[in-house]
Amino acid sequence: MKTLTSINPVFVIVVVMVGAIPLLLSGTEINPVLLIASLMVAATPLLIAAIGELVVEKAGVLNLGVEGMMIVGAIAGFAISVETGSALVGALAAIVAGALLSLLFAFLTQFALANQVASGLALTLFGLGLSALMGQSYVGIRPPAMAKLDLPVISDLPVVGPILFSHDPILYVGIGLCAAVWGLLKFSRAGLVLRAVGENHDAAHALGYHVIRVRVLAIMFGGACAGLGGAYISLIRVPQWTEGMTAGIGWIALALVVFASWKPWRVLLGAYLFGGINVLQLNLQAAGIAIPVEYLAMSPYLITILVLVIMSADKSGAPASLGRSFHASQ
């Protein structure tokens, strides 16, 4: 019975959504292979940012600044790519920028013991402003392209080729990251310490672990991931720079962690589902079906709410110390 209740909602969501796709596609001229390939691209920023936030939350910290770190990563990656002419250098710069910005959050919540919700919001508001300021001279420019995987023969295979073997490197990094986080959390000693800090920081402290140090590192990892996710949007997904271009993806990433019950593989599943919804609604907009564009554009946010409602019954995966400040005197 226990497994039934914990699997059911996710299963139902997946079946309903996958079942709805052929229905929506009938009558339009959308190529399903290209659709799957582009949904993987659409899902990647979400996947990378959500994996980062998952690690942060596993350490017991709730960082609501994902959106802010993503957009700063987006402009930092974009600007450095344009200046250096290399998209890869840009992506590295975005990682650094995201991690640096997250240090502000780490200082506020871990050393100044400020409220995590308020600090995360501050990070988002600040990041949105900062990115707009940094991005002024980069509007309307095209960034250098990132080379795509091109294996002889394999990348040219029908169906499998475009879906699996001809993407940009960061997409594979995202999937690898997901696997690595799963493995580290489950099997490594570092993962055990991280989870201990997130479940009960007082006990972890009593055992001699450095709660604050672990959390700061986790926050920086989350920031780096959010930065990379943001750069993926401005460098590969769109690719250009517009103000506020992350358009809530950082917030959807936060929702995704709840959806995934703090399990890395479910983050992957959830990211691909949301990516699918987004690509589908964009394709339907282009195909000119009877539903107005604005209502289609609402759908990812409405579906996020719906999924949150279905999933919020199961809070068993939430780290017990999530959102609580730690100070050794308490």
């Binding site: 502000l104 400020a114 501050a122 600040f126 949105l128 402003g129």
Partner: peptide, 22 residues
């Protein structure tokens, strides 16, 4: 002065406020 600078300014205010709350 770019209008985004004021947004940054307002964001900074919240940061300093939260830090000083300590």
């Amino acid at each position: 002065l770019p209008s985004a600078a004021i947004q940054v300014f307002q964001g900074m205010l919240l940061f300093f406020l939260l830090a000083l709350d300590l």
